[in-house]
Design a protein around this nucleic acid. Sequence first.
DNA 1: AACGCTAGTATACGCTTGTTTACATGTCAA
DNA 2: TTGACATGTAAACAAGCGTATACTAGCGTT
Lengths: 197, 197
Amino acid sequence: MTGLSDVGERPPRDRAATRRRLLDAARRLFAEHGYDHVTVRMIAAAAGANVALINRYFGSKSALFAEVLAGEPTVRAVIDGDAAGLPRRLAEHVVRQIHTGAESPVLRALDRSVGSVELKPLLRERMENAMVRPLAARLTGPDARVRALLAASVLMGGGTLRRLLGLDDLRSADRELLTARLTAVFEACLTEAPSLR
Amino acid sequence: MTGLSDVGERPPRDRAATRRRLLDAARRLFAEHGYDHVTVRMIAAAAGANVALINRYFGSKSALFAEVLAGEPTVRAVIDGDAAGLPRRLAEHVVRQIHTGAESPVLRALDRSVGSVELKPLLRERMENAMVRPLAARLTGPDARVRALLAASVLMGGGTLRRLLGLDDLRSADRELLTARLTAVFEACLTEAPSLR
DNA sequence: AACGCTAGTATACGCTTGTTTACATGTCAA
DNA sequence: TTGACATGTAAACAAGCGTATACTAGCGTT
């Protein structure tokens, strides 16, 4: 057992490459299982590297997680753009994730790692800066932050539930209908003046 | 150090009472920190009981969690009732939780415990039986299950995000307006035929 | 008063965790 | 070729985990 498992030919003794492999393995594993259920030994094995190198190259497990987090794309691209099409874009984003299974690893890691005390400030800051604040910035009218929080809730909640129950049901649903429904949901979240009832 | 911490006078050698204290402590701790971050020693300390009693009375940590789960009230009371008022009732339910802070421990435990492999079937079954299925049963028309899943997502997502970001923003929001907005959200989730756009 | 049963205790077991240490090995300049 | 340094390895570390075991102490029955 040399420690190689996933990886084929690789140039020996390449610091940068090894670091990258560790980072990639960490990203994948954190996304799938969450922070707590991934051990440094799992990461090392998946990267075909030695456990000690994680601490050598990243300092600690949580520092590695932080670097994974920092490297992940945000939903900024979806949020930016004309405010009118925002609900529709958010809906399409969710539907796309459902169908491709390419849900953002950072989101998947997020809701599986909320319990960790050491990670909470990190995750909090990330959610705030990458989702809530930019979303609120695009909204006019009162309660912009509340509405942004609502929309962010929907974005988060889908992940948790989908992973718990499986996404087969949602996948098999009519795609255009689902997008329309989600658009309505996000509109209800974000609209300036909901009709009181 | 006698092991008492939280608990005042208690009748000595009372099996039923000790069991109940352990169950209560477990419910509170699981709800606050999630399954993984609660140790049996924490539970025992909070209950003013000995660690070994957990295994004696419940068999194992996960069996204790299962019993906590089984004892928790579900959202059935909110779901049951006339179908027309369902979105409004769900919205009021969420707003009530925000304002009282009395969010269901089971929900709080849920999204903090999704990562645990041993718990997944348990949680999955719970979500399915206590939320998705009864919700879908109240809906008419096609895609009932998809719509129920959507509503359940919103219910789940709020918890995760709220805990991550704090609920002060939502608390300070106008209560009636928030309810109206959430009603619209749930209507968008549950309505039979969303307008295509 | 002595027994037996049971609630409760103290402690140890085996294992896993993140991290650190001591060492081996490959690479390159001198 | 040799020495220095960077890279990777194996093993050990201390701490924490869930669980099991051997024990003590209280209570009711006889």
